[in-house]
Amino acid sequence: MQTVLSIAVDAFAYGMVLFIICIGLSVTMGLMQVVNLAHGGFAMIGGYIASYVARDMGLGYAAAVLAAIIGTIAIAIPLERFLYRRVYAQPQLIQVLMTIGITFCIIGITNYIFGPTLKTIPLPAALSGPVDIGFRTIAAHRLFVMVCGLAVALGLWLLIERTAFGIRLRAAVDNAAMTSALGVRTEFVYAVAFALAMGLAAFGGVVGAEFLPIEPYYALRYMVTFLVVVSVGGAGSISGALAACLLLGAVDTTGRYLFPDFGNFFFYLAVIVIVCAFPRGLLGREQARG
């Protein structure tokens, strides 16, 4: 029973980390139809900035998170304007190549600036101790991650379902040409959504650093994991991404606990089975594409 609970808590926390990072990827893929393999790279930039602010400058955790989000968005906006915008309507292979190129550049440049070592982000005292939640104690950081994940899910749901910006966003997802004919500046919607997605990636990279350590090849190592989550969940669907993150988090964590020798074996096997069974993702919608 103890094992089951431990697995459940770890799986849920890990799933939430995946969700915070991947939901931005899902949004950009559903909205702009761009396969952004560099998404993990932005999470990595966030992690490097946070590590620099918290460890080397000695500022607090909150300041580090804030700096990571703002810094990453500041880097992402010009990239969207000058690189991504050119490949929105291109075939997927072109997008894959461009974004792999951006990933390589991010890895090369960040490691040139910050040095090729593992980056730690020191946790504040309030998050590093255990917390008693009645029937057992869990690490406060896990609880924090879960709360963050749920808050992000709720916030995004409110933003997309309840605000004017959300209406424009959904309209642009459904039919970009018609939306812009109706007077919505779709380019502006794209840019804001992209910035939001990258900000979330940075946020997820920082709060998830305990699960996915910030290291020199972060962007490549977890690129596959993030893509898998989105293709299992279905591009552009928040509930699909949430379901995929929880499911894959559970598969991965359970596999690690029960069969530690087989590492990622079960994860990739599950991915192949799920993608073969649901080629459009668990809750993905029909894309208007041949």
Partner: peptide, 22 residues
């Protein structure tokens, strides 16, 4: 060939990772 586009790409990555693990 069971999927197209992004799922196909992900399948190919999962395939090579599975071989790697084996």
């Amino acid at each position: 060939l069971r999927a197209h586009g992004l799922p196909q790409l992900v399948l190919s990555i999962a395939f090579v990772q599975l071989f790697h693990e084996m």
